[in-house]
Structure formats: structure tokens, C-alpha cells
Amino acid sequence: MHFEAKIEVSPRDGIANPEGSTIERALPALGFKTTHNVRVGKLIRLEVEAESVDVAQSLVEDMCNRFLTNPVIEDASVEVLEV
């Protein structure tokens, strides 16, 4: 079966996020004065073959733990959809 995975990589809670802080400081200059807690991460999309959605999910989580994220500074949430 063929699956599409969407992996949202975000900075871990408690880890400073310089990109988010810089954007947060810039927003008021454009008049957006009520914004706070800006955090910047990344989105990875990939396609994967697997016997079931559970297998696909665990494959992608394994990729996240071993390669796609650095667990010292990042968390990932994985969404897998059959196509």
C-alpha cells in the first residue's frame, strides 16, 4: 500500500527558538501587536510503501527518531494518509 506522510518538526518546549523570537520582534513593526509565542519549525513530506497504516506510521516515526529530527532540540508529529 502507498502512503503519504506529513512530518511536522518543531523546536522542543523549553528550547529557545531564535527564528521564532526574531519574527516575534518584527511583527509589531507591521502593526501586528497582539502576536506572541512564535515558533518556527519545518514540514517534511514523503511517500512510503507499507503493508498497513500502522506499519507506515512506525516506519516514519523510526526515521524521525534516527535521522529526520535531532531529539535534543526537536519534536516531530507524524500524520500518515493512504493514497
Binding site: I15, A16, P18, E19, S21, T22, N70, V72, I73
Partner: peptide, 16 residues
């Protein structure tokens, strides 16, 4: 650090 031979990680500088 990525290879796990040293502890911790290095991220973008404060101030970007």
C-alpha cells in the same frame, strides 16, 4: 554532536 560522539546540539545563533 549529530553522530552522538559529543553531548548536546548546536542551533541557530540568538539574534539570527
Amino acid at each position: 554532536t549529530e553522530a552522538g560522539l559529543l553531548p548536546g546540539a548546536l542551533q541557530k545563533n540568538v539574534g539570527m
